[in-house]
């Protein structure tokens, strides 16, 4: 299971911006755009999820996941993908 904290930590590292990470659950449903995370941060996050947790979210999929909750849902419910 990928936790919100783990995801926020990766987002913070990939973007260099710690602010969203400090807000925890409050940001679950905020859009990445509003949090200041652009498409490149999400691409970098996709690579880091693979390296650290062996979680596969292809680049063309993560691009369309708009919120931290959407990423967690995708990462943690792999059976529903097909």
């Amino acid at each position: 299971m990928l936790s919100l904290d783990q995801l926020l930590e990766i987002l913070a590292e990939c973007s260099g911006d710690q602010q969203a990470a400090a807000h925890g659950e409050e940001v679950l449903d905020r859009e990445f755009d509003m949090l200041g995370y652009d498409s490149l941060v999400l691409l970098e996050t996709s690579a880091q999820l693979k390296h650290r947790y062996d979680i596969d979210i292809p680049e063309d999929v993560i691009r369309d996941l708009r919120t931290p909750r959407a990423v967690l849902d995708y990462a943690n419910v792999p059976a529903e993908r097909d």
Binding site: G16, G36, L40
Partner: peptide
């Protein structure tokens, strides 16, 4: 500089 600019 803001942290956001450092990784890039």
């Amino acid at each position: 500089l803001p942290g956001r600019l450092l990784p890039q």
